[in-house]
Design a protein around this nucleic acid. Structure first.
Lengths: 198, 198
DNA sequence: GTCTATAACTCGATAGAC
DNA sequence: GTCTATCGAGTTATAGAC
C-alpha cells in the first residue's frame, strides 16, 4: 500500500536528493506528495528529522555494498569487475545519490563520522593484504592499495557527480549518457586491470 | 591594498564555495569580511550578482586550463602527465572549487550551457584525432577517447569532491591527504599510461 | 488524519542618519 | 562609505476546526 507516510518519504527523497538540505522547501515536498505542509509536520516533527531519515537511507544504500565488496573473499580482478558493474548499475538507477551524499557529508562531516564508524575497523586492512598477496603471487604489479581503490571509486562515481557538466562538454544527451555508462561497466574494470596486471 | 570591495570578494568566495548559493547567507559574508550587510549591498546590488561574480571567476579558473591542455600539440603521454599534475596542484590550492562548480552547474545547467559554448566547437575533436593517430603509430592500444579523458578527469577531480568522505573512510588527516595527493600527481599518470601503452 | 489559517522566524534588501 | 534600524517576502512550524 501507499500510505501517506510512504508518499512523504518518496517525495522527500526526490526533493532532498535534487536540491539538498538547504535548497529543499517543505512546500516542494508537500506538493510532490500531494498533501499540505501541516500534514508533513504531523508525520515528521521538522525538516531536520525528515532530512536525516532520507540521508540515512541514502548512506545505507551507498556504503554497505562498497564495504561488503572490498572485504569479500573474491580474487582481485573479479572484485574489481563486480564492484564497477554493481556500482554503476546502482547509480544509473539513483543518479542523484552520489552528489547528494558527497554534499551533505561536506556540510556535516562531524555527524557523518558517528554514523560511519559503527563497529567498523579499518576498512582497507583486508584489501591491502589482498593486493600485497596478489603482488607476491606475481599476478599484479606493485601498486598502492589506497590509490587503486580511489581510482576505481573515482572512475565509477565521478561521471554521475559531474553528469550535467559532462553532458554539456561532450554534447551527449540523456540516452547517450546511459549507453556510455553501460559500456563503462566493463570498460572501467578493463582499464584498471590492464594497468595493474603483470 | 585591501579595499572593502576586495574584502567582500574574498569573503564571498570563501562562503559561496563552502556553502553554495542556497546555503550561503549574506550575513555570513558580511561577518567574514568584517562589515555589515548594508555595506555589502552598497557594493553589490544583490546576492545573485555577487554570486555570479564569484562563480564566473571559478569557472575561468577551472576550465580554460583543461581546454588548453587537451587541445595542445603535446604528445599524449606528456599531455596526460602535465594535465594531472597541473590540475591536482590547482585543486590543492582551491580545494572547494570542484564541488562548488559541479553543484552550481547541477542547479542551473541552462545558464552554464550559455557560458560554456562561447565560440567553442567540439572539445574532443582534436583529442580524438590524436588518440587515433597514436594508436595507428603503434604507441598505444585501442582506447575510447571519451573514456580515456573521463577516466583522467575522474581520478584527478573526484578525490577533492569526495575529500571529507575519503578522510573519514581512510582515516587520513589533512596533512596525510595533502601528501597523498602530491603523490597522485605522478601516480595517476603512471596508472593511466600503464593501462594504454603498447 | 487531514485541512485552513496564521504565528514565529529567517533573511535579503532598503531607508536614512552620520 | 559605513552604520543602525527596519521592512517585507518567503519558510518553517503550530493552533485549531473538521
Amino acid at each position: 500500500m501507499d500510505s501517506t507516510s510512504d508518499k512523504i518519504l518518496a517525495a522527500a527523497k526526490k526533493v532532498f536528493q535534487e536540491k539538498g538540505m538547504a535548497g529543499a522547501r517543505m512546500q516542494d515536498i508537500a506538493d510532490e506528495a500531494g498533501i499540505n505542509k501541516a500534514l508533513l509536520h504531523y508525520y515528521f516533527k521538522n525538516k531536520e528529522q525528515l532530512f536525516f531519515r532520507i540521508f540515512s537511507e541514502a548512506l545505507n544504500q551507498f556504503f554497505p555494498k562498497i564495504i561488503e565488496n572490498i572485504q569479500s573473499e573474491k580474487p582481485l580482478f573479479e572484485k574489481i569487475s563486480t564492484f564497477c558493474s554493481a556500482y554503476i548499475e546502482m547509480m544509473l538507477k539513483n543518479p542523484y545519490l552520489p552528489l547528494f551524499i558527497v554534499n551533505e557529508i561536506n556540510n556535516h562531516p562531524d555527524r557523518m563520522r558517528e554514523i560511519f564508524w559503527q563497529g567498523r575497523e579499518n576498512l582497507f586492512l583486508g584489501f591491502t593484504a589482498q593486493v600485497e598477496a596478489e603482488y607476491s603471487a606475481g599476478i599484479i604489479k606493485q601498486v598502492s592499495p589506497a590509490n587503486l581503490f580511489l581510482n576505481m571509486l573515482s572512475m565509477c562515481v565521478f561521471p554521475f557527480v559531474a553528469k550535467p557538466m559532462w553532458l554539456i562538454a561532450s554534447g551527449m544527451d540523456e540516452l547517450q549518457f546511459r549507453f556510455f555508462m553501460e559500456q563503462r561497466k566493463t570498460e572501467v574494470p578493463r582499464f584498471i586491470i590492464e594497468s595493474i596486471k603483470k
